[in-house]
Write a protein that binds this DNA or RNA. Structure first.
Lengths: 214, 214
DNA sequence: ATGACCATGTAACACGTTACATGATTGT
DNA sequence: ACAATCATGTAACGTGTTACATGGTCAT
């Protein structure tokens, strides 16, 4: 709920989630539909039937007064931080196991080629917005203003990651050059040996071998 | 698994997760222990008993040859991206509902005061590392090199978020000034008056009500 | 003696995903 | 005819969290 201050069906919601705010929230239809039903039963949403051009009848939900109260209370809560379990970082963390810097480099390139287009997409979204909205950056409606804040967050996040990617790729390349010159692997100090004993947990394998994270 | 290239107990693992690499991976003991057992049964880990100064006997696990093969295979997979469900962004996205820019500002301050110390912690970790390791940035062991990459990622990520925080706070303040000039209502909220109920109110659907993200 | 830390585990529950199931309409 | 899109749902499964259960050692 919360997206339902304007009426929408479960299907609509999925579209918003995928295209509008995909960079910080996602959900599957199989999760959305039961949730809508439960929230309606709790009196936080109300629904009505509506026709549809193609396909079966839609069920359009909207937030109730009670729902708004709940929503406001939730918004006044302290910020809630998710768990950020960045699997690809765990992969890099352990990637020395492969002793294969070219692979590390390739891996970083893959990260870049995922994020770069997403950053572009967010920038384009902003640009298009600025065209169609006359009071773009400074005279947005309150709702649009808050939405724009989250859009900017996405940009800063992707930008940071991409900067890191470039830095890392430079460093990996430098290290590869050095290895080639010496003809020797570089390892001098076993950092893990003194204080920074860092091990990597079972969790990595628990997460299974799925190749794509959305 | 994967952290177990050097032997460690479940308890050790938890400590590493919390202190060493908390910025991209977390797990609870109640998840770790069963996982270790299962992975041992699958032949990916082996265990032995060990004494402990305080408390009961430890069970120390270590990766097997089979486990290393699995690990290498996993590392050669494509990067796996988690879902990044940033609840706090959803809160901001919907925060226009409150019509209370001072609250938005306070919220952003809370974000900053969470991230700023974490960025500092990562910078300090790097600085201490540079002291105790003579070949710090350029002559690290292969393992340490990869670990350092992930450390840098944490820094870039927090840095990006903080930059966004500052930008956003500037914009919110500017908007507040403008509202004051125009004589438009700046909703006055009794800051202390709200009870901080734990809410399962959920933004879009029902994201739970965890108050802290680690 | 009290609390902090070491150390291992189980049970119930919440959450999310994939796969399955159904069926209409529109464009090629 | 076939694929894509609209539209709603259920079932099985896997993973992760909280709460519960147990008990030893060390410092104050």
């Amino acid at each position: 709920m919360g997206l339902l201050r304007e009426p929408a069906s479960g299907y609509d919601l999925k579209a918003v989630l995928d295209h509008g705010i995909g960079h910080f929230w996602a959900a599957e239809l199989s999760q959305i539909y039961p949730s809508l039903k439960r929230l309606e039963q709790q009196g936080l949403l109300r629904s009505r039937r509506a026709a549809s051009k193609r396909g079966p009848g839609r069920i359009v939900y909207e937030i109730t007064a009670t729902g708004r109260k709940e929503l406001a209370a939730w918004l006044r809560n302290e910020p809630q931080f998710g768990d950020m379990r960045h699997t690809f970082l765990a992969q890099i963390y352990l990637m020395d196991e492969l002793k294969d810097l070219p692979h590390t480099l390739k891996f970083l390139e893959q990260l870049r080629s995922r994020w770069a287009p997403r950053l572009e997409a967010l920038k384009n979204a902003e640009k298009e917005w600025s065209w169609r909205d006359p009071g773009f950056p400074d005279r947005l409606s309150l709702a649009a203003f808050h939405q724009h804040l989250t859009l900017r967050m996405g940009q800063h996040a992707y930008q940071g990651w991409l900067t890191w990617c470039e830095e890392s790729m430079r460093r990996v390349r430098a290290r590869m050059r050095k290895e080639n010159q010496n003809g020797q692997p570089v390892s001098v100090t076993a950092v893990g040996a003194h204080r920074r004993r860092q091990h990597r947990a079972a969790i990595v394998l628990d997460s299974g071998h799925r190749s794509e994270g959305r």
